[in-house]
Design a protein around this nucleic acid. Structure first.
Lengths: 336, 336
DNA sequence: AATGTTATGCTAATAATGAGCATATCTTAA
DNA sequence: TTAAGATATGCTCATTATTAGCATAACATT
């Protein structure tokens, strides 16, 4: 049974597996991500995700290893952890030939119920939308879309010759950025980031040498903070996955305190999805889904009438095939 | 910027990345998976997925590499390919200590529009449900569930001491196998396989040394064909993913010919989901989702009234955020 | 007591879903 | 030639969800 293993392993190149973790939390309605400040250097890029190599001699599973790296680099013990994706074409073919080690990276998503002190190794909790300004529609369509992204994407479409090639680009852009019939689809975070990367609208494109020369320096000031290596791509994957997952698994409660008001819950969902929801319908949704149960307590923190406090109803997991916050996806409006 | 890379790479163990492919197709309403017959040996296990190591010096991306391995081992050129999951704890800690190479495997899913000749290297197309007999509910609840699986799982629950530990096992079993309120959830393929593995109900458990001694040999004859290494686990992941993906992306058409009748389409969906669907509602669903358009042709192959032939409406991708076959999940019945 | 603020209850219109009856159009056997 | 069998297809009705609001409740502050 070992035959295949041995046979195919002969001429192996050295491969390294990096494990990277996206830690998500919230404070004051701001969705946050844990970043670590790079050591000083001549780099433009100052931030990275917690990460480290997978060493199976030390940690039996990759998840164990992720937990270890995160603990070492941030002091945090993770609860909810989920594998995201494995990135095998890091730096898009711009591999440093001096370095015989070719890194593959496996991204993980972890949810943290509240932000922790920022300390070890210069870790900070950064507003997710500082990295993806075009993803936050809670105050209407982000200006950057019409000002910078849309015109540049349109130019990119025109730049190619050939009817089919142009059509293909147009379709990709339309679907990813919602210039099509159905409008903005919050979950397509990765598709959007990939397009911006490809069209040279994020700083990483330059650094990876994809784009020959900065056309307008100012663009990169407004298209979000660039990260080390492909970490922003991993983050985009994480945001997309989280946005879709809250709809069919009760993961949102990993981000909530033990008890909470329905409006607090709504604000968290809105912060993640980047969209505003209809308040009355949201509470009906949550209640009829059986996701929560009342406590006898009320919150004093609200301005007006005190809000009842709820807690997560764990039993819902055995009652429905895919319990989650199934709010509608009919585009973004400013409500209430 | 290279600092981190170098620093962490120092004491790397040798890691191998295997890429495995799950090729799915259909013939005569039977969902099939491509397997390769192992070379002769004293093994019990005779089949494996197409796989091979990722060598970044040869193929820039992992997907490229998967395509190459599949082409070499089966002669097939893949169209639709999607990454599934990365398995880092292969053989569950039973690592052969003579072999310093610890394999991590990245699974891929590919859809093939029709089964191909079975030839190169002894590749065969096998009925998916030969590997997962408990997953096919098209003719009612599979007998194996009540006969073998349920009693063994119940015994496994009782085997542990402590109220909490027992409750936890009970919950896992209930949710995975639908002994809970909502019944069978077709998408939880992996959860079910993992449970069977853990409880020693599939042959791989024995081979990996998880279970000390076969209690009843006959069990393993009925719990499906075991595969090389963790390939059956990869297959379970693939089936679960596919079952969920057809609901929100039009991937089902990757498995269809250019034109087809609505009933043919239904049969394919049923074959994958393992459930029977309501015929009239299915066609209403497909039509109102805008997934198909009529051709002027009709099929002669039907026994009675000739059926109109349809084709996939590609434009649907730009019209809806997540077009797919959103049939209901209200459990399985025998319909029509 | 009036005003502002947030929570919460409720409704009418519309859309989606679940289950099934009825009819249409073919082939094949009597 | 007709009856029987087999599908395909059209349509309905009851039920449940969803959307968009209006309206009221319960607090704090002025």
């Amino acid at each position: 049974m070992q035959n295949y293993q041995n046979k195919v392993s002969k001429s192996e190149p050295k491969v390294t597996i990096d494990l990277s973790a996206v830690l998500v939390s919230l404070s004051d309605g701001i969705p946050k991500v844990l970043l670590i400040e790079n050591e000083k250097g001549e780099n433009v890029i100052n931030h990275r995700l917690p990460f480290g190599p997978f060493n199976p001699n030390i940690n039996r599973t990759m998840e164990e290893s992720v937990r270890k790296w995160v603990l070492e680099q941030t002091g945090l013990r993770l609860a909810f952890v989920e594998q995201l994706y494995t990135f095998g074409d890091r730096f898009r073919g711009i591999i440093n030939n001096d370095d015989p080690v070719i890194p593959v990276s496996v991204g993980y998503l972890a949810l943290i119920s509240r932000v922790t002190p920022e300390n070890l190794l210069g870790s900070i909790w950064l507003d997710w939308y500082k990295l993806f300004p075009w993803e936050d529609w809670r105050n209407g369509q982000p200006k950057i879309l019409d000002l910078i992204i849309k015109p540049n994407l349109m130019a990119w479409i025109q730049k190619t010759k050939g009817h089919n090639s142009r059509l293909e680009r147009r379709y990709r852009v339309e679907v990813a950025f919602g210039f099509s019939d159905f409008g903005w689809d919050a979950e397509r975070v990765l598709e959007r980031y990939e397009l911006l990367y490809e069209t040279g609208l994020v700083a990483e494109s330059l650094i990876d040498g994809k784009i020959p020369f900065p056309e307008e320096d100012s663009i990169y000031d407004s298209t979000g903070l660039p990260l080390y290596q492909d970490h922003r791509r991993i983050l985009a994957t994480a945001l997309g996955r989280l946005r879709s997952k809250i709809r069919y698994r009760p993961v949102i409660f990993e981000l909530m305190p033990k008890v909470f008001t329905l409006f607090e819950l709504q604000k968290v969902v809105e912060a993640l999805s980047g969209e505003n929801l209809h308040k009355q319908n949201f509470r009906r949704l949550i209640e009829t889904e059986g996701l929560v149960e009342q406590t006898e307590m009320v919150s004093e923190k609200t301005g007006g009438r005190p809000a009842k406090l709820y807690r997560f109803r764990r039993e819902v997991i055995r009652e429905k095939p895919s319990p989650g916050v199934r709010f509608s996806r009919k585009g973004s409006k400013i409500l209430n």
